[in-house]
């Protein structure tokens, strides 16, 4: 039993170290990489524009539900006027960066893992290396850098449409004064909350896009499967681990910031 626990612990530590080296190697390789800006813009488009519909839809419905549930709870204490405070702080401090990250993982992260896995299988990554092109700089670094910029922007968008959703359910459906809602939002939100939101989103971006790239890039090292099944297994692992890491990192960051 002890041996099994030890072996698993060692393999987890080894995997974490390998992941950290992968991220470090990618950033180091990006120094002096040619046409990096162009590839960052393309990666930004994949993580940004392509994920826009899902961010807008999920953000709106999250705000609507928060508005309904919040009104129901606050009404019991006669504090409906605090609905704006509840919705805004919930969205900015927690739900915005977390849910936006999960949506981007589902849309862009899974696509990234599958794309890199297929490129590994079809020897495109090996071809880059034989051309003298760093595959880390060409394929991974632009995605990582783009994630540091795009995730906070997507989180901000998610929060914005969520606040509008909260206002819709609070004011339009349940009859709360619109001014009461928005003035509560204005009073509650401080610049520290916004900074925390952006910091969390950037960390989630780096971790999730890093994980998706890592699993896709190393699809050939998958022990349980080969070929197309290895790509499938790597993609699944990338998405599942990304979702877990978002929630775990959220807890760690929050516990330091609160």
């Amino acid at each position: 039993m002890l041996r099994i626990v030890g072996r698993h612990t060692l393999s987890i530590v080894h995997a974490l170290g390998d992941f950290a080296l992968f991220i470090g190697r990618s950033f180091r390789a990006s120094v002096g990489s040619r046409k990096l800006g162009r590839r960052i813009v393309r990666a930004g488009f994949e993580q940004g524009a392509r994920c826009l519909p899902v961010i807008l839809i999920v953000g709106t419905f999250t705000g609507l539900v928060l508005g309904l549930q919040g009104y129901y709870v606050l009404n019991k204490f006669g504090s409906e006027g605090l609905l704006g405070t509840l919705v805004s702080l919930s969205l900015i401090r927690e739900m915005g960066p977390v849910l936006a990250a999960l949506m981007i993982v589902g849309q862009a992260g899974s696509a990234l893992a599958a794309e890199l896995g297929i490129q590994r299988n079809s020897e495109q990554i090996a071809a880059l290396e034989t051309m003298g092109v760093s595959s880390h700089a060409f394929l991974v670094a632009p995605r990582l850098i783009a994630s540091l910029l795009v995730y906070p922007m997507q989180a901000a968008l998610f929060v914005t449409v969520g606040l509008v959703g909260g206002s819709l359910s609070g004011s339009v459906l349940l009859g709360l004064e619109s001014g009461t809602y928005w003035s509560a939002v204005e009073r509650a939100v401080e610049s520290q909350d916004v900074r925390e939101c952006f910091a969390k989103a950037a960390v989630f971006g780096l971790l999730t896009i890093g994980l998706c790239a890592y699993h896709g890039f190393n699809a050939h090292r998958c022990r349980s499967a080969t070929g197309a099944q290895a790509v499938s297994a790597s993609t699944t692992r990338a998405v599942v681990q990304s979702c877990i890491i978002v929630l775990a990192a959220d807890y760690v960051i929050t516990s330091f910031l609160v």
């Binding site: 490129q119 020897e123 495109q124 090996a126 071809a127 034989t130 051309m131």
Partner: peptide, 10 residues
């Protein structure tokens, strides 16, 4: 330069 059996084109 190296030409892969699978061509390895992007």
């Amino acid at each position: 330069s190296f030409l892969f059996q699978s061509n390895a084109l992007f």
